[in-house]
Design a binder for these strands. Structure first.
Lengths: 294, 294
DNA sequence: GCCGCCTATCGCTGGATGTGATTGCCGCCT
DNA sequence: AGGCGGCAATCACATCCAGCGATAGGCGGC
């Protein structure tokens, strides 16, 4: 049993047929058949049930499949590990919350791109949940997400502490005024956004009912929307000032317990840490002081 | 790059030479050389430095080695997973503390051997540290050890709660008398024993100084030694009675905080749980009530 | 300078791997 | 019912590469 056998096996299992697998593997059906039979002989177990529309995994096949996938992943990772001689290069795919990207990573990314021109950086944004899912699926080397996170396969390191503030139109003078409002609208980035949940909790705890929600895909749109008096939102306080002009929205401080949130960098415990990632985290850790919250 | 390439690579790395590797792999040196060169071409990296007495890993080779080992392990595990059709059979290697084996596992093992005659059970005893090391090295599928244990790669499940008692010669009537004794001797199983450390802590906290230690390799020897008046020991209270005759030693109850200890079953999080192990834990969980502490 | 131990290289061979054609099975459509 | 399309199994054949044995060449110790 060797890696290429498992590659053939996995393709057949995934596509549900030897013809289809042969097409994908750029070979012929007879070859695929022969290799599967060979593998079955080797393991002394039937891996597929053959039926007229293709094949289906047997119980034994189902047990083998995760190993086939894991071995393929490992070999892939091994190749990258060997190539990686300590000087960052190649591809670096990381994820981040939209807010963290805007607030913290912009200077880091530009500095990184300048320092390590051989690296092709891909920064993808999403919600904490989405990002964690991508990291677990090994499509991202790691991601900046909203804490707390607990998962046995993930290693978390605290990188930033954010102070969240309630942003309202300038006409709302106090928090009490916000909580007393009827038909309050909250403006959030997207459905699964970590801050949205927190904002709803805060308002519900104050007895606010009948919330309306607006979803906008970009921070700029949210900001504009709040400034125009359409609703309120919850965002890192430090975004105001360095990123957007002051004065167009009113910033309400929250009690420490509700306003403090940690930004964690998560990555798979068992995954290889490329030099490119290592260098990125190194830079991120010394993020410029001007972006630090007051 | 394929699994057999990595096997050759790992052998060369381990043995430090292509000739030696060829001998171990039952092939010829030219073949090993060719395959290593092939692998190096494939990865576009030099894996070994050749010198006159053999070869040595380069930095790239050192990076590859752990993957080679992991892939070999995975393939091995895959074979076992495929073979394992749900009915326990094959080999089952588990570890246990001496005391847990004597107190808890004896009936489980006999019942297990009767229920699943196709399994070859190997029970190895050792200290918590030793057992954990063996489990991590995949030489044991799991082990019963003394809690608490914290390791990211291990999954722990609490299986028993033991009450530890101080065993002394019958002549020692009270705990105070024990603590007041001069030149107190403690009798322990072996150097790394979990209970030994706990016993020393208990005594030190009571101000006992000048401890002498005796190490005996078997529980029976320890028991005999205490009965003969040579020293005191700390063992699960439930051992007295079901396993050894009462009356020959005096059993001193300890405060709950010091006397309670958990027995955990630990296994590698990422390892395959064989049907044989599964069935064993199933049996162990319903361990006979007569062995339960009072 | 020779010997022992090591790796590199070469030509050869056999078996494993891949190919293309054919057969036979099953379900679906006509 | 019969033909058709999609599928896997099988076979004979081609190809290729892993493994073999022999030899060359490098290095250090005796």
């Amino acid at each position: 049993m060797d890696a290429s056998d498992l590659r053939v096996f996995a393709a057949v299992a995934r596509l549900g047929g030897m013809n289809r697998a042969a097409a994908e593997l750029n070979t012929v059906q007879s070859n695929v058949t022969a290799r599967i039979r060979h593998l079955e002989d080797l393991l002394k177990a039937t891996l597929f049930e053959r039926h007229s529309r293709g094949v289906a995994l047997t119980a034994a096949g189902r047990r083998l499949l995760p190993y086939a996938e894991r071995v393929a992943q490992l070999l892939d990772e091994a190749r990258r590990a060997v190539r990686d001689d300590g000087r960052p290069k190649g591809e670096l795919a990381i994820g981040s919350l939209e807010t963290t990207a805007a607030l913290r990573l912009t200077p880091v990314l530009t500095a990184y791109a300048r320092a390590w021109p051989e690296v092709d950086v891909a920064l993808r944004t999403g919600t904490t949940q989405e990002l964690i899912h991508e990291v677990l699926a090994r499509r991202l080397e790691g991601a900046f997400v909203c804490g707390p996170v607990e998962h046995p396969d993930l290693e978390e390191t605290m990188v930033y502490r954010e102070e969240l503030a309630l942003l309202t139109p300038p006409s709302m003078r106090s928090l009490d005024q916000v909580f007393a409002a009827r038909d309050l609208k909250i403006v959030v980035l997207r459905a699964g956004c970590s801050y949205r949940q927190r904002l709803e909790e805060i308002l519900v705890r104050r007895g606010v009912v009948g919330l309306r929600r607006l979803e906008f895909g970009t921070l700029e749109a949210i900001f504009g929307c709040v400034a125009a008096g359409l609703g309120v939102t919850l965002l890192p306080r430090a975004l105001i000032g360095p990123v957007w002009g002051k004065g167009r929205v009113r910033v309400h401080q929250l009690p420490a317990k509700e306003g403090r949130v940690a930004t964690l960098f998560v990555r798979r415990r068992d995954a290889f840490v490329s030099s490119a990632l290592d260098a990125f985290l190194e830079l991120a850790r010394r993020s410029p002081p001007r972006a630090a919250p007051a």
